[in-house]
Design a protein around this nucleic acid. Structure first.
Length: 262
DNA sequence: ATGGTTGTTTAACAA
């Protein structure tokens, strides 16, 4: 089973690229973030035409928005609000083999890495704290996958320059600490790093602001797939589809990340 | 130290 996550940065604008990804990777389940549309205008028919007839969509106007689309039936579909806001950042569903899948979009946190000066950074830190507490309290034995745009690059080689990124939102020590606390709270296992040693650079996002993203290669690993330990023996492969950053005509700044589970 | 781009929606905001 192939399960993918992709921050698509407007699913309506980029449905053509999603179809290309489907044709090339043939994922069984696709989890999207930043769909940026209300449910009524989500391209549900286009996904169904590609075989993804089972859909759990949670969108709002202009911002955020998450979705799980699947070729196999989904049950127990739900969503969760965080930090007292209804801003469409978390949906979940259960697959036919009883695995719970959680698709999440963590707040980016603005530019200034100071929670007193920047309410968006304070919101992000509170969000990460709440995630740790929520997952610590949810100690059932169901196999689970949590994936999405977590907007934090935790390891030194999850960014192009650890030293130059220490004061940049997405790689500050306080964010990394809170992301790791959340990971520990539910014994989440990093399914993507499993196949790449920590000494090796690994990115899933490249800024639009670089003149040449590929040449400068100043990436960050913001998109993650974590699994519960019981699923680790089934983990066969993880892929970050770097080439999708160059897809025409208008690529997302994030690329698809997916794992294969037996 | 600064500015660089994109998407939604149409001037400002978020990323």
């Amino acid at each position: 089973m192939r399960i993918a996550t992709w921050n698509i940065n407007s699913v309506r604008l980029r449905m053509g690229l999603v179809e290309r990804f489907i044709d090339e990777a043939e994922p069984d389940i696709i989890c999207l973030q930043e769909t940026k549309t209300v449910n009524e205008t989500f391209p549900a028919e286009a996904f169904a035409a590609k075989g993804y007839k089972h859909q759990h969509i949670l969108g709002m106007k202009s911002y955020n928005g998450v979705a799980i689309v699947s070729r196999q039936p989904l049950t127990e579909m739900g969503s969760q609000n965080w930090q007292g806001r209804e801003d469409c950042r978390h949906v979940f569903a259960t697959t036919s083999n009883g695995t719970e899948i959680h698709c999440m979009y963590v707040p980016a946190g603005g530019d200034i890495p100071d929670p007193k000066a920047n309410p968006k950074f304070a919101h992000k830190l509170g969000f990460l704290d709440e995630c740790a507490a929520w997952w610590k309290a949810k100690q059932d034995k169901k196999p689970k996958i949590i994936l999405g745009d977590f907007n934090v690059a935790p390891l030194e080689n999850d960014v192009w320059s650890h030293k130059q990124m220490l004061d940049v939102v997405s790689h500050t020590p306080v964010e990394v600490e809170k992301l790791m606390a959340w990971q520990k709270a539910h014994q989440w296992y990093d399914a993507v790093r499993h196949f790449t040693p920590p000494e090796e650079k690994l990115y899933s996002w490249w800024s639009y602001r670089a003149a040449d993203w590929e040449l400068s290669n100043r990436g960050r690993r913001l998109d993650h797939i974590w699994i519960t330990p019981d699923l680790a023996p089934s983990l066969k492969k993880a892929t970050i589809l770097r080439e999708a950053r160059g897809w025409a005509p208008k690529p997302s700044d994030h690329v698809p990340v997916y794992i294969d589970l037996k």
